[in-house]
């Protein structure tokens, strides 16, 4: 037996450390926030510097409905975790399905928005600085939504076929943290692009 540095502890206090999943996700969120910050800075820096249109004021509409969908999906994913924690697997499936649905509506809204921007207004990523920064910022966020949706759908599948149980709560919670982050980013993007930027 290799003798290790064991010193009998005086007080036999419980030694509890944070969950590594949560800490890891928190780190990832910090790193991702830094990426988004740079894209937001670029958006703001180039705002209004275009020599030619279209400008945000001319072509952007407030995506209110889809935004509400995305934000409320934060609530549903939270409820899913809570349901799983209490062992109510059917409720969990239901809430997960709702989350996936709401997220998909948001993505559909973005797709529709881009379609009209490209084919009605003729704005592509090559058109001008607004196109460059708009598509990259919103696209980066949409990519994150897509990844989140893929993982949520996977969770939904496992929940439906019954292989997810209360002992997986921790993992689902980590996933929900990611989803909350994606929503929080949307609040920032929405404010910058659709409110301040117009």
């Amino acid at each position: 037996m290799s003798q290790t540095a064991v010193i009998p502890q005086t007080a036999n206090e419980a030694w509890i450390l944070p969950s590594r999943g949560v800490v890891g996700m928190a780190c990832l969120i910090v790193a991702e926030s830094a990426i988004f910050t740079i894209f937001v800075v670029a958006y703001l820096y180039y705002l209004g510097r275009d020599q030619r249109g279209p400008t945000p004021r001319q072509v952007l509409d407030l995506p209110l409905f889809t935004s509400i969908c995305l934000l409320s999906s934060s609530l549903t994913v939270h409820l899913a975790v809570a349901a799983l924690h209490r062992g109510r697997r059917h409720a969990c499936s239901l809430w997960l399905a709702a989350t996936v649905l709401l997220g998909s509506i948001f993505l559909g809204g973005t797709a529709h928005e881009w379609y009209t921007l490209i084919y009605r207004d003729g704005l592509t990523i090559q058109t001008n600085l607004f196109g460059t920064t708009f598509y990259s910022l919103v696209g980066l966020h949409a990519t994150h939504v897509l990844v989140g949706l893929a993982m949520l759908s996977l969770a939904l599948v496992f929940s439906l076929n019954g292989s997810m149980s209360a002992k997986h709560t921790g993992r689902l919670e980590v996933l929900s943290l990611y989803w909350h982050f994606v929503d929080a980013v949307w609040v920032v993007v929405f404010t910058v692009v659709y409110v301040l930027g117009r």
């Binding site: 037996m1 290799s2 003798q3 290790t4 540095a5 292989s163 997986h168 993992r171």
Partner: peptide, 19 residues
């Protein structure tokens, strides 16, 4: 990692480390 994290048992080799 799912549903269970894969582990292997590694035998502890008796070895005296004197400090």
């Amino acid at each position: 990692v799912l549903p269970h994290e894969a582990h292997v048992p590694v035998a502890v080799i008796a070895e005296e480390v004197e400090i």
